[in-house]
Simulated assay, not measured.
Amino acid sequence: MRRRIYWLLPDLASARRTMDDLLLARISEPNIHFVAREGSDMTGLHTANVLQTSDVIRAAQAGLVIGGSVGAVLGVLAAIFFPIFGDSPQWGMVAVLAIVGAGFGAWASSMIGISTPSSRLKRFEPAIEQGQILLMVDVPRSRVEEIEERLQALHPEAHFEGVEPNIPAFP
């Protein structure tokens, strides 16, 4: 189980030094993510990807549930009122339409979610727009305190912004 630690860094030089210190602390690069305002030079930093900066995962999950539910309801109606063979309900249509509805719902919702900024990062938007850089580092639960103390000692210019108890499995 990993925890996500948030830090706000004042500038690019501080972010690069912090990245180096995290690598020396044996935090692998795929677990270090930086977010800066549009057009910032992020050379030498592992920038956050679309899964970390948008609500695509949350939207896809919601679309999966809603689409599956709507598909199941339509499947029940189709099975009862529009049987394919004979006059008895075709209950297999419920499963088929629920799966199709879930797939379509997840796809359609993810297309919307990919263009929506992450609700987890909303509170950092003003600081990022002012030129600060957000660091998100995913560490094992047992190392959270160690990494917090290390960053605080080595980077007094950085601001600790909290720990997220449950990070998503994919981003």
Score class of each variant (00 low, 15 high):
Gly162Tyr: 06
Val100Ala: 15
Ala25Asn: 06
Ser119Asp: 07
Arg4Cys: 13
Gly101Ala: 08
Thr47Trp: 03
Thr116Gln: 14
Ala106Leu: 05
Leu134Tyr: 08
Arg4Asn: 12
Leu135Gly: 06
Arg123Glu: 13
Thr43Met: 06
Ala98Thr: 02
Gly105Ser: 06
Val137Trp: 05
Lys122Trp: 13
Pro10Cys: 12
Gly86Lys: 04
Met42Glu: 01
Ala158Pro: 03
Ala78Met: 04
Thr116Tyr: 04
Leu9Ile: 15
Val35Arg: 07
Gln130Ile: 03
Gln132Arg: 15
Gly71Asn: 06
Ala169Tyr: 12
Gly92Ala: 02
Ile147Ser: 04
Asp55Ser: 15
Arg141Asn: 12
Gly162Trp: 05
Pro89His: 01
Thr53Gln: 11
Glu161Val: 11
Ala106Ser: 12
Ser14Pro: 03
Asp41Met: 12
Val65Arg: 07
Phe81Asp: 01
Ile84Thr: 04
Gly39Ala: 08
Met136Thr: 11
Leu51Ala: 11
Ala59Trp: 10
Gly105Trp: 02
Phe124Asn: 09
Gly44His: 08
Ser88His: 13
Val56Gln: 02
Ala25Gln: 10
Met136Tyr: 01
Ile147Asp: 02
Ala153Glu: 13
Ile147Gly: 04
Glu29Pro: 03
Ala72His: 04
Gly101Thr: 04
Arg3Thr: 04
Pro126Gly: 11
Gly39Val: 11
Phe124Thr: 08
Val139Gly: 07
Met93Asp: 00
Thr53Val: 11
His155Ile: 09
Ser110Arg: 11
Pro10Glu: 14
Leu51Gln: 07
Gly75Thr: 06
Leu135Val: 12
Leu24Ser: 13
Gly67Glu: 02
Ser54Pro: 02
Gly71Leu: 03
Pro171Ser: 14
Ile57Trp: 01
Leu151Arg: 11
Phe124Leu: 09
Ser109Pro: 02
Ala79Ser: 14
Ser69Arg: 05
Ile133Pro: 03
Phe104His: 01
Thr18Trp: 02
Arg141Tyr: 04
Gln52Arg: 09
Phe170Met: 15
Met1Ile: 09
Gly39Cys: 05
Gly44Trp: 09
Arg120Met: 10
Ser119Ala: 15
Leu22Lys: 08
Tyr6Asp: 10
Met111Ile: 10
Thr43Arg: 13
Leu154Cys: 14
Val56Tyr: 01
Gly67Met: 07
Ser142Ala: 14
Leu154Trp: 06
Met1Glu: 10
Ala153Asp: 11
Arg150Gly: 00
Asp138Ser: 14
Leu77Met: 10
Arg123Asn: 07
Asp55Thr: 13
Ala158Arg: 10
Ile84Lys: 00
Ser88Arg: 14
Pro89Asp: 02
Ser115Ile: 10
Pro89Ala: 02
Ser119Gln: 14
Ser142Trp: 04
